[in-house]
Structure formats: structure tokens, C-alpha cells
Design a protein around this nucleic acid. Structure first.
Length: 869
RNA sequence: GCCCGCCUGGCGGAAUGGCAGACGCAGCGGACUUAAAAUCCGCAGGCCGCAAGGUCAUGGGGGUUCGAGUCCCCCGGCGGGCACCA
């Protein structure tokens, strides 16, 4: 049995003392203001704006942050070396529920909790050696920030981009609060356990749907965004063409004479078997008013939760209202049901059911014994025998059983149906969007107050701009349920700015997604007394490279795209698209561990052993208690499979943490954090230092020209420059790391190379590694160039010498019928005849050919020869 | 349920349609050491073979191609998102 490496401290007295070196170089960068840029770049400057998604100040940085900010820092340092003026700011997404939870649970004020967390996390980030410009830092909970956000809200309002309307929320009747979907567990409030109800509240909305067509179209121009993010956004916006169809009620219900439905399949109207409305639909209300059972069904639907997943996964249920509608083409009557799978928010909140060609409708029809009439005949099927059993037919085909549509393919039948509806005035062709307006009202304390005053005489009145910011009151009481702003004794009581009579402040605050929808613009002029200054945003936006988690692929990015359009419409910005380039990183994962009694254990509580056959086992440190090694999964506090970056940096240094996190795998994929991987990265930092230190005495002075006899090593050097450059340009940071490992191996193998070439190689090793391990790079550079006043952080990126990239000979794979049989070494530029002759001369090739005549010879220069017999 | 992504040795992964497994981790053998750590040298996908070499192999099945991890179709498994967590 061998002890695992995880619990061993690194060498007690390493030759490279990162504990002294890292703070020293951080101070040096700071002193020389290496990362500061002006709000307005000088003429001719090539600006580059690198931004990582700013963190929520939970208290400590986690490995996801380390990964995110390391990726951004590599880009920032690389682009700076490429001669760009790089803006790389940092701030805090500081409003949100956790601060209120802390207040309720521990009695600490949200502001105090938040700012203390920020102070701690700022220190942790600084220890990572990130090339950030801290002068631009702000938190979204600073009144200077949220006051400007209120200014934007009022400008949007003036521009017609803010509306007040009603919408449904999850309501916890015991806590008296609105719940997030994730706070609804099995239909009950997470804290109170009370059955959650849907409730209608009057709320503020940002009119994102006004930009829906442009938000969709512009995706096509975001050529540096991942395709999958664009696809997710496209699906979210959800443009669909179809028809609105009005169905006359056989007898009026309440004050309604007809029901309007939206459908993407007007071609299947003849296959109708019922009409269904959402539980929130006015007709459902009418049915509920008249019938206790209907009321009970509507109430049941209201307990289902508001999330789309919950609604669609629930068993299909319905209630026949007894109302009937007339078919617009045939006049036949069909029943109107209330159905739990119809969404009030989408379309008109009502559908017509065609079970033969929609799976949900079919499930519903089978459950309640409703008719199923196929009206689309699959190509090649027989009209007399075709029928639908348990699977709806949703593919293309030809209309049948459909009156005047018979014989038309689906697309044409849709047009013909819409034409007929329009002609008889019972419907129109429309484009429908899945995207809904953005409800920003939150019944919470720790958010940006919505700058509105409600007056009985004047209605909703904007707070005058010169009275901004509307500050959060500090003396708030979290002991009562509900929104502290609402039951604060004085805060909401103000006079109407319009008529001067007593009025009430809006006590809702903004969704925190609003805060993060324009912070990237605020960074350009973070202290301005307007939301943004035009010179600064015009110079710096868009963000050239934005980096963050895929979990933000839809909402945050879409809201930010909306905000830049809205800010453009209100004269604050000139750009539509905030992020020209986007990179989405994967999660950081770790093994999970369980003790004998099933409790989760932190990695540092576990001790490992490896048996002779290589299998690992684990025990609780200092005991014999067996530990079950569980799955590798996303780090989470509940499973305790977390690793504290602070502890890692203290033990191994920032460069090691950065190097490992970059080396493990491609940054867009989920990575596994392993102790052995970190230890390996640490060994490599020490190895580089040793290599440089050991080589120093024999190196010629700085500036010595590399010798001609050093060509082999020089070729390795310049191939590495080219390869690392290419890798950094394409976000293949794990490949850049691999090339540097290979290069370090090559330098060690070339101990006999002349000094000038060795000096060049070692200097390049330091410079090429600098974006990834900036401290060690400075340390190595200072040893190689004693007295040199320039830091690596200030050096331009090296260029590879093209003359040294060209090979003299190439190795070609020789295949017979696509199978590798030999390799041959030929001079670059050898003629095809020579190459084929050499290939065919190989003994192994001859054997594989087996005397058969060669039918075809394929030569891919520099790669392969394939002989076909 | 709908949408999206992923699947290559013991592990993470590399590979403009052209030598599959670079590089790292773990492992094994050796050197150094009183011993260990650290360091250095070497081995290493499976199977057959003393070797030369052969053969199988990129989740499974089919297809396109002189040639497929890569392109196309079908199937399976895993993960993520679904509008008040951020």
C-alpha cells in the first residue's frame, strides 16, 4: 500500500518560494499600473475589452470563479502582449436573496453581510494574480450604481419600454412571499411547507418582446458566439408562424361570445376534437363561477407551480366546462375543456385539440375518450386504412378528411386554411413569439428599488431624476414574513411628486438580472454621475471577449442584449450587441465521499490508499472508518465535494492553481479537480524554476544571438511559439499547456545545445507561460535578465521565425487500402515519383501488396501515401 | 414533456477527413538515499507472438469515402436548461 499524495505537504523548502514571489510580483504590477487604461483610449489605440461574468459575493471564491477568472486573465494578458489596450475590470453582482436569508437566519444586515463578503473575496481574487484594474470596481448594491439603474428605468419608461401588467406568481400563503420556482418543492414552500398557490400580481415589465425580431435576427451576426448558445436563445425567443382562430361559443358565457386560439397547425383544423383553455383563462373563471367542480379543478391547477417543466411533465388532466364552440369551417360543435397543460402565457391561453397530429392532445383525448380523426396522410400511406393509435403523426403529409384542403401538402394546406379564415373573418395568419415580456418586480428588500410613487389621483408617477437614488432604508425588520420594505413604518409614505398629496412608494425591487444587464457598460465610466458617459462606452463597447458559465446562456445574455438595445433607444449607447465574443466554460467537478453512516465528507477529511492492483480505497482521516468514493459531480456545498481555492493557493500558490485548471481539459467542458493533478502542476512550476536556475551559470549574456548550430533546439523553440500562439487564439489552453510541457522536455533533452540557443529557449519558455503562470514567468525572467527594467507583463508577444518552422524532411504514413503498413522519411519537396517508389520499396508494404497490381496511388503532401490494389 | 450538449486507454484528454491515444495524472521497473520524500532514466491500449509483425479498438449498429474519432442516418447512456437561484 502506498500513501496517497493528497495529504502530503509540498517540499518543505522548495527552491522557488511562491509565497514570497507571488505577492512581490503582484505589488510590482500594481506599482507600475500595468493593467490601468483610460476611460477614453488615445487615438489609434487598439482597444480590447475582456470581461468575465462578475461574481455573486457569497463570501468565498469557489473553483468555478478560479476557472472563470483564470481563463479571462490568460486572454487579457495575451491580448495585452499582442499590443492591445486591454480593459479588464471586476465588480460584484451584490443584490439577491442569500443576503436576505442571512439576515433572517443570523440577524446580520444584508448590506453588512454583503460588503464583508466582498472584502474577503476581493482579497482572495487578488491573491490569484489576475491582471485586473481594480480602480473600476463597484458593487451593484452601491447606491451610486443602483441610482443610475433607476435613471435607466425611468428613461426606458419614457421610451415606452416599461409596462405595468398582471402576471401569475408562486405565492406562499404562510410566509406571505412570492417564491422562486426552485423554492417550490413538491408544490410546497421550501421554508413554510405550505401549499403554494398561483396568484395574480400587478407588476412591472420591461418590453423585451418589442425587440424580439431583432434579438432573433441579430443572432446570425454573432459569429464569435458558440452555436449552441445562439440556438438556445433562438429557441427561447421561439418565433413561430401560425394563425389566430376565433371560435364562436354556441351560447355566450359570461360576457364572452368567442374564444381565440393560437395554432401553428391551421391545416389540421378539420381534425379538431375539442378546445382547451388554461386554468387562468377568463372562460375557466366563468366555468368556475358557475360550477363547484370546475372551481376545484382550477384551484388544483393553481397548485401546480408556474414552471414549464412542472406543467408539461404533470399528468394531462382536464375538466369539461359544458360550453361548446362552433367550428369555423364546418359549424360543427365541440366541447370546451379546461386543461392543465395549456399555458396562459403562450399564444392566447387557448388551443384547439387535434389529437391525431399532436402528442399532448392525443394523450388527453385518449384519457377522456374524445374523438381522434386523422387529417394528414403520411406520404405513401393508404387513406382508407391509416389510423392513429398511441403515437400522433406530426410529420409532413397530405391533407385528407379536410374538405377544401384535401390533397394539399402540409405547408400549402396551412396557407389555404389561413386564406379561408381571413376571407370569412374568423382568423388571421400571425407570427407568435414564445418570448414573454420580462417581469422585473420582486417583493424583496435586497434589490434596487423601483423608482415609482403610487398616487391615488395621478396613478404611477416616476420619481424625479434629481431625487435619485431612491435609497433602501437601513433600519429594516426581517422578523416578520413578507417584504420588509412594505411593512417599514415610514419609508413608503411620501408625497406625490405630481400633485403633492400623500402617496406611496413602490415597494417592489428589481430582479437582480437587471443589475447584471448593464454592468459591462458601467465599467467604462464607473464613477460617472450619469449611467454611462458616451465617449467611454463608444470607445470600449462592445466587450470583445466575454467569459462565463453556460448556465447563463439564455437569460443573462438575452437580458443584456435587450438592455443594450434599450440603452441605444434611449441615447445611452451606440451598440446593439454588448458581447462581440462569448466563451462558455464548463463546471468544476470533484469526487464525492460518504462515511459509513452515509454522511457526506469533505475531501480534506478523507485519506486515500492505492492497492497493488491500482484500486483506490479511502478512510476517514485518522480512523479506520471506510469511506465510499462516489461519483465525480459538480462541486456543491450539500455534497461537500468542494475544494477551497484559498487553501489551494496557500498550499501550492496561484500559478499552480491556474496552471492545473488550464491544463486538465478543454475549458468549455466540465473538468475534474483532483489533488494529484494539482500536485503535478506544482511539480512543473518547481521544475521550470530549477531548469532556469541550473542553466544560468553556463548561459551567455542576455542578447547573445542564438547560434546556427543550435538549430534543432531553435526549431523546437519557434515551433512552440507558433503552437502556443495558435492554441491561445483558439481557447485551446490545455493544448498550450501540453506544448509547453513538450517544450520543457525538449529543452532538457538539449543540454548540449549552444548557450545562445538555450538562452533563447528558456526566455521563450518564461514568456509563453506568462499568461498562464504570470508570477513564475516574472521570476524566471528576472533571473535570466538581471537588471532588465521590463517586466514580462510589459513585453510584446514573441513572433516565431518562419524560416525555423519549415521542416527539411517529413515523415509520411504509407497505407495499403487505408491500413498503415510503414512510415517513410522523405525530403520536403520530393517528387511524387520518388515518394511512391520509396513507399513501394518498403518490405512491409510489399508484403501487404501481396503482388497485386496497384490500381490507384494517393498522396496527401506531408501526411500520407495510400496505395489501392 | 420540450430543447441543448457530451460519449476516445486505469483517468483527464490530443488528433485542417490522412500514422488514434500527443501531453499530463495514476501505475510499473530502475538509479540516487541508511531510509523516505524530492529528483533523474526507462516501460506502458487489448489480444496473439521470442521477435519481426499481425489483429482488434474512439458508446452500439449502419452508410459515404482510397481513407472516418472526425461527415450522414438510426439506437443507447450520461449531463444541462426550461422564465422569481445567481
Amino acid at each position: 500500500m502506498h500513501r496517497g499524495i493528497m495529504n502530503d505537504a509540498p517540499t518543505p523548502s522548495p527552491r522557488y518560494d511562491f509565497r514570497a514571489a507571488e505577492p512581490r510580483w503582484q505589488a510590482e504590477w500594481d506599482k507600475r499600473a500595468c493593467f490601468a487604461v483610460p476611460d477614453v483610449p488615445p487615438p489609434g489605440a487598439r482597444k480590447y475589452y475582456v470581461l468575465e461574468m462578475f461574481p455573486y459575493p457569497s463570501g468565498k471564491i469557489h473553483m468555478g470563479h478560479v476557472r472563470n477568472y483564470t481563463l479571462g486573465d490568460v486572454v487579457a494578458r495575451y491580448k495585452r502582449a499582442r499590443g492591445h489596450l486591454v480593459m479588464h475590470p471586476m465588480g460584484w453582482d451584490a443584490f439577491g436573496l442569500p443576503a436576505e436569508n442571512a439576515a433572517r437566519e443570523r440577524g446580520v444586515h444584508p448590506a453588512q453581510w454583503t460588503y464583508a463578503n466582498i472584502a474577503n473575496m476581493r482579497d482572495e481574487l487578488k491573491r490569484m494574480g489576475l491582471s485586473l484594474e481594480w480602480a473600476r470596481e463597484f458593487a451593484t448594491c452601491d447606491p451610486e450604481y443602483y441610482g443610475q439603474q433607476q435613471h435607466l428605468f425611468l428613461d426606458f419608461w419614457k421610451a415606452g419600454l416599461v409596462e405595468r401588467k398582471e402576471s401569475w406568481v408562486n405565492w406562499d400563503p404562510v410566509d406571505g412571499t412570492v417564491l422562486a420556482n426552485e423554492q417550490v418543492i413538491d408544490g410546497r414552500g421550501w421554508r413554510s411547507g405550505a401549499l403554494v398557490e398561483k396568484k395574480k400580481l400587478s407588476q412591472w415589465f420591461l418590453a423585451i418582446t418589442k425587440f424580439a425580431p431583432d434579438l432573433l435576427d441579430a443572432l446570425g451576426r454573432l459569429d464569435r458566439w458558440p452555436d449552441r448558445v445562439k440556438l438556445m436563445q433562438s429557441n427561447w425567443i421561439g418565433r413561430s408562424e401560425g394563425a389566430r382562430v376565433r371560435f364562436a361559443l354556441a351560447e355566450p358565457a359570461a360576457d364572452m361570445a368567442e374564444i381565440e386560439v393560437f395554432t401553428t397547425r391551421p391545416d389540421t383544423l378539420f381534425g379538431m376534437s375539442f378546445l382547451a383553455v388554461a386554468a387562468e383563462h377568463p372562460l375557466a373563471a366563468a366555468a368556475a363561477a358557475a360550477n363547484a367542480q370546475a372551481a376545484e379543478f382550477v384551484a388544483e391547477c393553481r397548485r401546480m407551480g408556474t414552471s414549464e417543466a412542472a406543467i408539461e411533465q404533470a399528468e394531462k388532466k382536464g375538466f369539461d366546462t359544458g360550453f361548446r364552440v362552433k367550428h369555423p369551417f364546418t359549424g360543427a360543435e365541440y366541447p370546451v375543456w379546461i386543461a392543465n397543460f395549456v399555458l396562459m402565457e403562450y399564444g392566447t391561453g387557448a388551443i384547439f385539440g387535434c389529437p391525431a397530429h399532436d402528442q399532448r392532445d392525443l394523450d388527453f383525448a385518449r384519457k377522456y375518450g374524445l374523438s381522434v380523426t386523422p387529417v394528414v396522410l403520411p406520404h405513401g400511406a393508404d387513406a382508407a386504412s391509416f389510423h392513429v393509435a398511441d403515437t400522433a403523426y406530426t410529420e409532413d403529409g397530405t391533407a385528407f378528411n379536410s374538405g377544401f384542403l384535401d390533397g394539399l401538402p402540409v405547408a400549402q394546406a396551412k396557407r389555404a386554411a389561413i386564406d379561408a379564415l381571413e376571407k370569412q373573418g374568423s382568423g388571421t395568419g400571425v407570427v407568435n413569439w414564445r418570448l414573454r415580456d420580462w417581469g422585473v418586480s420582486r417583493q424583496r428588500y435586497w434589490g434596487c428599488p423601483i423608482p415609482v410613487i403610487h398616487c391615488d389621483a395621478c396613478g404611477a408617477v416616476p420619481v424625479p431624476v434629481d431625487q435619485l437614488p431612491v435609497r433602501l432604508p437601513e433600519d429594516v425588520d426581517f422578523s416578520k414574513p413578507g417584504n420588509p420594505l412594505d411593512h417599514h413604518p415610514t419609508w413608503k409614505h411620501v408625497d406625490c411628486p405630481s400633485c403633492g398629496k400623500p402617496a406611496r412608494r413602490e415597494t417592489d425591487t428589481c430582479d437582480t438580472f437587471v443589475d447584471s444587464s448593464w454592468y459591462f457598460a458601467r465599467f467604462c465610466s464607473p464613477r460617472a454621475e450619469v449611467p454611462v458617459t458616451r465617449e467611454a462606452v463608444d470607445a470600449w463597447l462592445p466587450v470583445d471577449q466575454y467569459i462565463g458559465g453556460i448556465e447563463h446562456a439564455i437569460l443573462h445574455l438575452l437580458y443584456s442584449r435587450f438592455f443594450s438595445r434599450a440603452m441605444k433607444a434611449t441615447g445611452h449607447l451606440a451598440v446593439d450587441e454588448p458581447f462581440a465574443g462569448l466563451f462558455t466554460q464548463g463546471m468544476v467537478q470533484h469526487e464525492s465521499y460518504k462515511g459509513a453512516d452515509g454522511r457526506w465528507l469533505y475531501p480534506e477529511e478523507v485519506e486515500f490508499a492505492t492497492a497493488a492492483d491500482g484500486t483506490r480505497s479511502a478512510t476517514v482521516k485518522g480512523t479506520d472508518e471506510a469511506v465510499t468514493i462516489g461519483r465525480v459531480e459538480a462541486m456543491s456545498k450539500s455534497k461537500r465535494n468542494t475544494v477551497d481555492p484559498g487553501a489551494i493557493i496557500a498550499k501550492y500558490g496561484a500559478d499552480t492553481a491556474r496552471w492545473f485548471i488550464l491544463s486538465d481539459n478543454p475549458p468549455e467542458r466540465d473538468m475534474e479537480w483532483t489533488e494529484s493533478g494539482v500536485a503535478g502542476a506544482y511539480r512543473f512550476t518547481q521544475r521550470i524554476f530549477r531548469m532556469v536556475e541550473a542553466a544560468l551559470p553556463a548561459l551567455p549574456p542576455p542578447g547573445t544571438a542564438p547560434e546556427a548550430e543550435g538549430r534543432a533546439l531553435r526549431r523546437a523553440t519557434h515551433r512552440t511559439i507558433a503552437a502556443v500562439t495558435e492554441a491561445l487564439e483558439t481557447f485551446a489552453f490545455n493544448v498550450a499547456v501540453a506544448r509547453l510541457y513538450e517544450f520543457a522536455n525538449a529543452i532538457e533533452a538539449a543540454k548540449d545545445a549552444p548557450g545562445g540557443a538555450r538562452r533563447e529557449a528558456l526566455e521563450m519558455l518564461a514568456r509563453l507561460a506568462a499568461p498562464m503562470m504570470p508570477h513564475l514567468a516574472e521570476e524566471a525572467w528576472s533571473l535570466l535578465r538581471p537588471g532588465d527594467a521590463t517586466l514580462v507583463a510589459q513585453l510584446p508577444w514573441p513572433d516565431a521565425d518562419p524560416a525555423l518552422l519549415v521542416a527539411e524532411t517529413v515523415t509520411l504514413a504509407v497505407q495499403v487500402l487505408g491500413k498503415l503498413r510503414a512510415t517513410i522519411e522523405v525530403p520536403v519537396g520530393a517528387s511524387e515519383e520518388t515518394i511512391f517508389a520509396a513507399a513501394e520499396a518498403e518490405e512491409n508494404v510489399q508484403r501487404a501488396l501481396g503482388g497485386k497490381p496497384i490500381r490507384k496511388r494517393i498522396h496527401v503532401p506531408g501526411r500520407v501515401v495510400n496505395l489501392v490494389v
